[in-house]
């Protein structure tokens, strides 16, 4: 495990949470609860030494790739990219506004650091597999990470890609499932029971790692483990809480796709600290 100051990382995670609340409330819409559940994962990737990347050179051919397949979680990605220096932090305040490169779902042609245009669920893992195969063809050593939602795993394409990635033995591909247990209209259990998740991925010949997705130590350890597996893709099933860190969002899944009003946002910022 790399030398990482855990306290600094936890502070960074808090900063990302604050950005998520601030920008979605300013925008008046968005999916803050879906972004909050993935904060530790993107914090580990961008600030925990997992991704080899260069914010001053977003198209560096040897960079590691992070593809946000659950595109609606993009406030977390935008916050991480801004904090990493891909673009000025002030841009976050123009989320979802006309002419802003921070669209409602990620647009790779609009914003530096965004690797794929996503938002139609189920497609990111296939795109990530394409990147992983390109690395093999070009003899490059970069790794590819794709973050999926648990509800997104309803999509058949996810399993087409899972089957193909194992078949092509792409050891440079890691999927993370943000298993926050809720999708738009209810729990994954009641809407479409995707469980048991890790067993499904293992049955598709993936190396499976199951963690608490809010414990940065576990998240970092999981990425380290995935990076030691070279002959098959790895999946990290991260158990998370939808709306993590903001009590009203944690308590009520019907906040999916809704921003907090200013008064609740103010309370949320206090709670996050």
């Amino acid at each position: 495990m790399k030398e990482i100051n855990l306290e600094e990382l936890q502070t960074k995670a808090r900063i990302l949470r604050r950005h998520i609340i601030t920008m979605t409330t300013k925008a008046g819409s968005g999916h803050p609860s879906s972004a909050l559940s993935m904060v530790e994962i993107v914090t580990a990737l961008y600030f925990g030494g997992v991704l080899r990347h260069d914010p001053s050179n977003p198209t560096w051919p040897d960079r590691d790739r992070f593809i946000l397949s659950k595109g609606h979680g993009c406030p977390a990605l935008y916050a991480a990219l801004a904090e990493a220096g891909y673009f000025p932090i002030e841009w976050l305040s123009r989320l979802r506004q006309l002419g802003s490169p921070l669209e409602g779902h990620p647009n790779m042609r609009a914003l530096p650091g965004v690797e794929a245009s996503t938002g139609s669920l189920g497609q990111g893992l296939s795109i990530a597999l394409g990147h992983a195969l390109a690395a093999r063809l070009d003899g490059k050593g970069y790794r590819v990470y794709a973050l999926l939602g648990d509800g997104e795993c309803d999509q058949g394409q996810v399993w087409e890609a899972a089957m193909a990635a194992a078949h092509f033995q792409v050891g440079n591909l890691t999927a993370i499932v943000d298993h926050n247990k809720y999708q738009q209209t209810g729990s994954v259990e009641t809407v479409m029971d995707v469980r048991p998740l890790i067993e499904k991925w293992r049955a598709f010949h993936w190396h499976g790692i199951e963690i608490d997705g809010h414990d940065l130590r576990e998240v970092l350890k999981a990425f380290d483990e995935a990076n030691t597996i070279n002959d098959q893709p790895s999946v990290i099933v991260a158990h998370t809480v939808k709306g993590k860190g903001v009590t009203p969002l944690e308590k009520d899944y019907t906040w999916h796709g809704k921003a907090l009003p200013p008064d609740l946002a103010e309370a949320a910022l206090k709670e996050i600290g």
């Binding site: 296939s126 195969l133 193909a164």
Partner: peptide
């Protein structure tokens, strides 16, 4: 690459490869 009988994945993989200059 024969990705099997799975056109959705086929197109997505192509998008990723094209993003890398293929």
């Amino acid at each position: 690459f024969n990705v099997g009988i799975a056109e959705s994945n086929l197109v997505g993989v192509a998008g990723g490869l094209a993003s890398c200059g293929k």
